[in-house]
Design a protein around this nucleic acid. Structure first.
Lengths: 236, 236
DNA sequence: GAATCCTGCATACCGAAGGTACGTACCCAA
DNA sequence: TTGGGTACGTACCTTCGGTATGCAGGATTC
C-alpha cells in the first residue's frame, strides 16, 4: 500500500524544551519508538509473536521498517522491549498492593490477590507466560523475571518465613520463593483459563490458603524441617 | 546438496508379515515417519522450534520435504508428534515409579522424585516446558498435558487428599492438582537450571516436603478449610 | 504373470516475512 | 549558512514454510 505522503502525524510532545533539555528531534524519535512498542504489544497479545509480521507492526505505527530497525536490533529485540514494559507495569502494581500492609501474612494475601488479577490480563498471559520463555529463551526470560515480578514474591516469602524464630539461609529462601512463584503462576493460570473466573478464584484462594496456613502452622510451631524426609537432609 | 542416489538405507522391519499383516511398503513408511520424528526431536531440543528449518530436518532424516508433508500436515503437526512422544514417555516413567507404592505419601514422594528427574531432561525442558505453550497454543498444550504427565499428578493428589476424613468435591481437587503441578514444575526448574543439581535437589526436596507436611498435618488434624481466609468462602 | 492402481515419496516452484544496504530529508550546532 | 549526523524511507536479498505436480515401484486384481 503506497501511502507515502503524509507519513506521520504530529506526536504529542510532552514538554517544551527551552534550551538544551530534550531536543525537538529527540522527542519525535521517542514518540515513534513508543508507538512501535505500543502497536507491537497489541499485536503480539492478539496474534502471538510468530503470527505478527513486522510489516503489520510498522503499518500500525505508520512508519516503515527503516524506523523499526533504527530503534531495535530486530523482531526479538522489539519483543523484549514489550516484555520488559509488561513486566515492569505488573511489578509496580503488585508493589503498590503490598505496600503499607503491616503483617507479613497480610502482605502475602494482598500480593496473592494482585498477582491473580495481573495474570488474568491477556497481555501478561500471552507475552510473559506463554511466549516469553520461547521467544526470549529460558535464560533471558528468567533474568528479566528476576528483576520485576519475581522480586516481589521473594520479598513476600522472606517476610513470611522470617516470622518464625529459625534462621534461614539465603539459598533456601530463593528455592522456596521459586517454588512458591510456580505455585502462584499455576494458581493464576487456573483462574485465567477458567470459564468462571470468580468461582475459580474462590477455589484458588482456598487451595493456596491451605498451603499457606500449613506452612504458617509449622512456622508458628517452630518446626525447622519437615519430618517426612528428614533422612535425606543430613548432607548439607 | 543433490544427493539423490542411494536415498535410503534399509530400515529394520520388525516382523515378517506373512499374508496381510504389515506389508513391506507400510513398514518402510512407518520407518521414515519415525526417522522424521527422531530427527525433529533432536533438532528441536538443540536449537528450538523457530531456529530449526524443515530442510535441516529432512536432510537429517535423509528424505525430502515431499516425504515430510506426506506424513504430517506441516511443521506444527510434526512438533505436536514430537511433543506427544516426549509427554507419553515421561508419563510412563512416572507411572512406573509410583506403581506398587502402598502409602499415598510414599507415592507422592516417589512421584516427586521421578518428576524431578524428568524435568531435568533437555528434551522435556525445551519441547514441553519452554516451547510447548508457544508453539501449540495454550489450549492444545493443556489438552495434551491433561492426558499424560498431569494425569499422574492428579492421581497423586487425589490419593493424598483422600487420606483425610473430609469429602472433597472434584472441582476443588482439580484446582489443587493444577496448583501442585505448578509447584512441582517450578521445583524441577530450580533443579534443572541449577549449577549444582545435586545440592539444589536437596533444597527442593526440603521445600516441597515442607509444603507437603504442612498439608499433611492439616489433613491429619481433620481441618477442612484454612482459617486464614474463612470469610471469603461462604459464597459457594 | 501382466496390467493396473495407488501409496510414498522426489522435484520445482511460490509467496511471505525477516533482515540489510543505501539514500535522503531535516534538525541541530557552530 | 553550512557541515554533520540523526532518523528515518526505499529497494532488495535471502531464507523458509508450504504447494503443485510428477513418478517409481510395491500391491492388487484378473
Amino acid at each position: 500500500m503506497p501511502k507515502s505522503s503524509v507519513s506521520k502525524l504530529v506526536p504529542k510532545v510532552p514538554k517544551v524544551p527551552s534550551v538544551t533539555g530534550t531536543s525537538r528531534r529527540a522527542a519525535y524519535s521517542a514518540s515513534t519508538k513508543r508507538a512501535l512498542v505500543d502497536v507491537a504489544e497489541e499485536l503480539f497479545t492478539e496474534q502471538g509473536y510468530a503470527n505478527t509480521s513486522l510489516d503489520s507492526i510498522v503499518a500500525g505505527a505508520r512508519v516503515t521498517k527503516g524506523a523499526l530497525y533504527h530503534h531495535f536490533a530486530g523482531k526479538q529485540a522489539l519483543f523484549e522491549a514489550v516484555f520488559e514494559r509488561v513486566e515492569n507495569d505488573s511489578a509496580r502494581t503488585i508493589q503498590k498492593a503490598i505496600k503499607g500492609k503491616g503483617d507479613a501474612w497480610q502482605k502475602a494475601l494482598s500480593g496473592l490477590e494482585a498477582f491473580l488479577a495481573i495474570v488474568q490480563e491477556p497481555r501478561y498471559r500471552r507475552i510473559v507466560t506463554q511466549e516469553g520463555p520461547s521467544v526470549l529463551g529460558y535464560e533471558r526470560f528468567r533474568e528479566q523475571e528476576e528483576r520485576s515480578t519475581y522480586a516481589n514474591v521473594v520479598e513476600i516469602v522472606r517476610a513470611v518465613l522470617s516470622a518464625g524464630t529459625w534462621e534461614l539461609e539465603e539459598e533456601m529462601l530463593q528455592t522456596f520463593a521459586r517454588i512458591f512463584f510456580g505455585t502462584l503462576s499455576a494458581a493464576g493460570d487456573v483462574v485465567a483459563s477458567s470459564e468462571e473466573p470468580e468461582i475459580a478464584a474462590l477455589r484458588v484462594r482456598t487451595a493456596v490458603g491451605f498451603m499457606l496456613s500449613g506452612i504458617q502452622s509449622l512456622v508458628d510451631a517452630g518446626v525447622e524441617l519437615p519430618e517426612v524426609l528428614t533422612e535425606s537432609i543430613d548432607a548439607d
